[in-house]
Write a protein that binds this DNA or RNA. Structure first.
Length: 369
DNA sequence: AACTGGGACAACCGCGATATA
DNA sequence: TTATATCGCGGTTGTCCCAGT
């Protein structure tokens, strides 16, 4: 049996709200509140509207202290940071912007901000196997888009070094604009604007917001990138690598280094906290994991922020041990913010007896050897 | 002036989560 | 425990407006 409709569809008005309807709804809610029942509310007021429609109208338009339009640069940055960090959770993003609604932000993102970020990069569907062809296309489009549209890419390109832009992923050169990385460690830079680049702040915020971001949403042992000692004495560090679509990603990959310098990878369901080893014999990944990674999505419209090599299976040989396999970011250049980020992580390892070079090698900085 | 395409925004729809009987 | 009602969210669609042809 299907769910009963929330209202009589045939007897309900749709489309734009009239000023009279707005006034009725607003004045009733201001006097009596919603009564905790949106479905019953329109009948009480005498509106031929669905309760859901009333709720939406109130939340997105009639509610006091709402702002419309005129997003500031600061708000842009917050939206971008949070989008890269948590994906299209508009309600969470909206909670960071007083007076803004999730619908407003969603519309703003879809119609303006995404385009502002992407500039005029129109790309064919991603060819996962050929990063160079994608990069070439971006480069070509960059060339053709150089038509004086100074707003394009302004958030992503703060310096004018075209060659570098062509060779590097489109991270902001100005680290104050740098999107949050999906790693729960303090980033190695300061942010003079709102502290949304600080992972702790975001996490606290999310926990505060409750729901699936409550404290137990993340498995406790994945709570940050730390070196710690497990109960059996193994030295462990962990990095979360989110896979799957931004909204549906319920799994992350944690890596563990034991005292023999062997790395193991486990998939952890963030909801259940269940660990599953994703490596089989000889360090190969299990087929299900391979499939999961190969079918990974990226936040809509921001695929280009994720270098083709960001998810990469490889074998790293070191003089003393074979690190069986890893998932690595591979930005390459040591001038990038990500390098500094990794360098900071590496420093953490160092204090725990893992050489910085080894840790950086983990992140595939060849020069770190 | 008429048409067209695209941008911007409001509103709707469907579904999962949660509450409640 | 289960079925049903409601809420809340994110994706999508509809509509209006404006600039370009």
């Amino acid at each position: 049996m299907g769910r009963a409709p929330c209202c009589d569809k045939a007897n309900v008005k749709k489309g734009p709200w009239s000023p009279e309807e707005d006034a009725k709804l607003k004045s009733y809610i201001e006097k009596h509140g919603t009564g905790g029942n949106w479905i019953a509310l329109p009948q009480k007021i005498g509106l031929k509207r669905c309760g859901k429609s009333c709720r939406l109208r109130w939340l997105n338009y009639l509610r006091p202290n709402l702002k419309h339009g005129g997003f500031s640069e600061e708000e842009d940055n917050i939206i971008c940071s949070l989008y890269v960090s948590i994906g299209s959770r508009w309600s969470v993003i909206a909670a960071q912007l007083p007076g803004r609604t999730d619908n407003d932000i969603k519309n703003y993102w879809n119609t303006r901000l995404k385009k502002k970020l992407l500039g005029k990069h129109r790309r064919e569907p991603r060819n996962r196997g050929n990063y160079n062809s994608v990069k070439q296309e971006i480069d070509v489009n960059r060339g053709s888009s150089n038509d004086g549209d100074s707003s394009s890419l302004s958030l992503l390109q703060e310096n004018g070094n075209t060659t570098q832009q062509q060779q590097q992923p489109c991270w902001p050169q100005n680290i104050n604009n740098m999107p949050v990385l999906p790693l729960q460690v303090p980033l190695p830079y300061t942010n003079q604007g709102p502290c949304f680049n600080d992972q702790d702040s975001i996490k606290k915020l999310l926990i505060k917001l409750g729901g699936r971001f409550s404290g137990d949403y993340y498995h406790p042992t994945l709570d940050g990138l730390n070196l710690e000692f497990s109960s059996d004495g193994q030295q462990i560090y962990q990095e979360q690598v989110h896979v799957g679509s931004s909204s549906a990603a319920a799994a992350c990959i944690s890596s563990t280094i034991n005292n023999n310098n062997e790395v193991q990878f486990a998939q952890t369901d963030q909801y259940s906290g269940v660990h599953n080893l994703v490596q089989g014999q000889g360090g190969n990944f299990t087929p299900s994991f391979e499939e999961m990674v190969s079918s990974s999505n990226y936040p809509d419209g921001l695929e280009f922020l994720y270098n083709e090599d960001m998810i990469d299976h490889r074998i790293i040989e070191s003089p003393t041990t074979t690190v069986t396999a890893t998932i690595t970011t591979n930005w390459g250049e040591t001038s990038t913010p990500l390098y500094h980020h990794h360098n900071s992580i590496a420093s953490n390892y160092q204090s725990q007896g893992v050489t910085q070079e080894c840790a950086l090698q983990y992140f595939s900085y060849p020069g770190a050897q």
